[in-house]
Simulated assay, not measured.
Amino acid sequence: MDQLNLRHLYYFWMISREGTIARASEVLDLAPQTLSGQLATFETALGGMLFERERRRLHLTDLGRTVLGYADEIFALTSELNDVVRLAPAERPLSLSAGVSASIHKLIAYNLLQPAMKLKRPVHLNCLTGNTEDLILRLKRKELDVVLTDWVPQEEDQRGFAVHSLAGSAISLFASPGLAEPLMDGFPESLNGAPMLATTADAPYFKNLMHWFSVNGVKPEIVARVDDSALVKVFGSQGLGVFAAPTAIRGEVCRQYRVEEIASIDDVNEALFAFTRSKHPAHDGVRAICENSVWFGSE
C-alpha cells in the first residue's frame, strides 16, 4: 500500500464507532452493500481483516484495533481543523449548541454554561436536554458542540469524544420548612419512613445516596419518581417529600424554592463532566466551559 486511502479509513472508523455496517451506512447515507464493498477493498489494501463477524456484530481484530488507534488520532485532528476553519469572524455572533443531561440540576447547568455566555463575543446558545447516550450520538454527528453530564461511560466506549472533568460537590437534602425542621434532629435516623422524592434519570449521585442510606440503616419512603430535576424541587417545595441537590447551590435552592437544608452529606458527591469532539476544542465557548468551571464545594 503506497498511499493510505483516507476515505476508506473514514468508513472503517465510522463502522467501528457504530458497531455494525447497517448503522454506519445510515450515518454515512450510503447503501450497506456499498459500505461493505469499501471495507473489503480497504482490508485487501491493508493485507488483513479488520473485523471478525459474530452474528450481526463486528469485533475488531488485532490489526483493526491498531488501525483504529491511529484513526482516532487522525480524525480528532481533522475535526479540530474543521472547527477552526469554520469558526465565524470574531465580530459575528458565535453559535453554541450544548447538550445537557436531564439528570443535572438546572442551576448547575446554568452555572456551567455561564463562562461561554460571558465571552466578549456575542453567543447564540441552543440548549438541548436528554439522556447522556443520546447526547453523545448527537455530539459525534456534530449536531452538538459540547455535552454536560454527570455520567461517564466505560473507557472502551469513549471513542470519538474527549472527557473533561469540570467540578464536584457534596449532596444536601432539602424539604419544605414544615417537613425539614423535625428531620434535622437525629439525622440520619430521622429519615426512616420519611417521604422521599427520587429521580428516574440515570443520576449517579442518587444511586450513591441510596447506597449511603443502606449503609447507614436508613429507609426513607419513596413517594414519587421524577425525571426532571427542577420538577423534583417544585414537588419538594410543596411539602411532598425530601429531595437531594448539590451542596454547592444550596443557597439558591433554598431561596428559589423556599425550602430548608436538612443536612449536607460529604460522603455522597456529584461530579460533572464536559464531552467534546477533541481534547483541545477550537470553539471559544466550549473552551471557556472546559477551562473555567464556576462552582465547586459548598457556599
Rank of each mutant, 00 (worst) to 15 (best):
A90E: 15
Y70R: 10
L50G: 09
A98G: 04
E52I: 15
F51R: 11
R65C: 07
S103G: 15
L77T: 10
N111V: 05
V84K: 05
A71F: 02
M117Q: 09
Q114I: 13
R56Y: 15
L107Q: 05
S101C: 13
E80S: 11
L81C: 03
E80Q: 11
L112H: 01
H105R: 06
Y70W: 08
L96G: 01
A109Q: 04
F75P: 00
L60Y: 03
L113E: 02
L68V: 02
L107E: 05
A76Y: 01
P89I: 11
S103R: 10
K120N: 11
D83N: 09
L81V: 10
R53Q: 12
P89G: 12
L63W: 13
L63H: 13
L77I: 07
R56V: 15
A116C: 06
S95P: 04
R92C: 10
L77A: 12
A76R: 05
N111A: 07
E80K: 05
L107Y: 04
L112C: 00
M117K: 13
L63V: 11
G99F: 10
H59I: 14
L77W: 07
P93L: 08
E80M: 09
R65E: 11
A109Y: 00
I108R: 00
M117P: 05
I74D: 08
Y110L: 12
T66E: 13
